[in-house]
Amino acid sequence: MPTAADPGSRSPHRITAFADPAAEFLAHACLTYGADGPERIAHASRLLVDHPSIVDASFAVPVVLGDPERVREWLAADPAVAVAQTGPFDWEPLLYLTYGRLGVGDPVGVAQQLLNAGADPNSGYLWEGLSSPFTAVTGCFGRGEGDQPPHPAGLALARLLLAAGASPNDSQALYNCQFRSDDAHLRLLFEFGLGRGEPPWTMAPSTRRMLHDVLLWAASTGQRDRVALLLEHGVEADPGIEGHPIHGGRSPVEVARHHGHTAVAELLASSVDG
């Protein structure tokens, strides 16, 4: 996983020159949080048709394709490929799997093979060197400001990673998913301990800070069900943390009132008073 000594900074969206068709395929098959779009996936699919030999050119290719048999063959020949940084982004294979968006094969089976071979369920990188790691779990859920699609097997993959020891206190996943009202990601993360302990990445915000920011956003957008879910799991409505600058430093109750979400404000106020 990235550490303060080795920040793991990557800018995958800025890579436009490729050493070979396999690298070009991998770059277009995965989310980069830059120029993502269905045309990139279509380009990756065409490359696979035009250059079928790329399935054996890089270990990350059968990983992205969810090909358990080819992955098994690679691992039998050299188990170290499960953890080696590779491909156009210098990612670990697990990241190519969870950020891949082709929607083919058996990604859960491949993920289990990688984990069995020593892949780190907390693997990740720092997008543009920013402090919130884009982890394998982050990749499962997708979303973000560009509303990137989740992995087709995202919840199953995330569950597998969390069961293998991935931290549920994933600040980037929480941020990326806050823009939609679906709470499946939150329920899964809470199931595996979201809110307890601190994330393993030294540069990440504290657990209280990241959950407070999620609560503030839910209050500002009137997501009453999400606010109720957060309060139910012990997220404090008035934790003594200064409000995020984007919300003018207001508390969750003040944010809800400011945006006219009366029912949410009342729920938050009752939590503070109670």
Rank of each mutant, 00 (worst) to 15 (best):
T3P: 09
A4D: 13
P7I: 03
S9F: 05
R14T: 11
T16F: 08
A17L: 11
F18M: 01
F18E: 02
A19V: 00
P21I: 14
A22Y: 07
A22R: 06
A23K: 00
A27E: 02
A29E: 02
A29V: 02
A29T: 01
A29P: 01
T32L: 00
G34I: 04
G34T: 06
A35H: 10
R46N: 10
L47P: 05
L47E: 11
H51P: 12
P52H: 12
I54G: 06
I54T: 07
D56N: 14
F59N: 09
A60Q: 11
A60D: 15
P68D: 04
P68Q: 06
E69Q: 09
R70S: 01
R72Y: 02
L75V: 10
A77S: 14
A80Y: 00
A84P: 00
E92H: 05
P93V: 07
P93A: 07
L94C: 03
L97I: 06
T98S: 07
G100S: 04
R101K: 02
D106K: 05
V108S: 03
Q112N: 07
A117T: 12
A117N: 12
G118E: 13
D120E: 14
N122E: 14
S123T: 13
W127L: 11
E128H: 06
G129A: 07
S132F: 03
T138V: 03
F141N: 03
P150Y: 05
P150Q: 05
P150K: 03
L155T: 08
L160C: 15
L162A: 06
A163Q: 15
G165Y: 08
G165M: 10
L174G: 03
N176S: 15
N176V: 10
Q178N: 12
F179T: 12
R180L: 13
S181N: 12
S181G: 09
S181C: 04
S181Y: 07
D182N: 14
D183C: 11
A184P: 00
L188H: 03
F190C: 00
E191R: 01
G193S: 11
L194C: 03
L194M: 04
G195F: 05
G195A: 06
P199Y: 09
P200D: 07
T202M: 07
P205T: 11
S206F: 09
S206Q: 15
T207D: 14
V214E: 11
L215Y: 02
L215P: 02
L215R: 04
L216C: 15
L216F: 02
L216D: 09
L216H: 08
W217K: 08
S220Y: 06
T221E: 14
G222N: 11
D225M: 14
V227S: 04
V227H: 03
E232I: 00
H233L: 00
G234V: 10
E236P: 00
A237Q: 08
I241F: 01
I241P: 00
H244G: 09
P245V: 11
H247T: 13
G249Y: 08
V253R: 14
E254M: 13
V255A: 15
G260Y: 04
V264I: 10
A265K: 13
E266F: 08
A269W: 07
V272R: 15
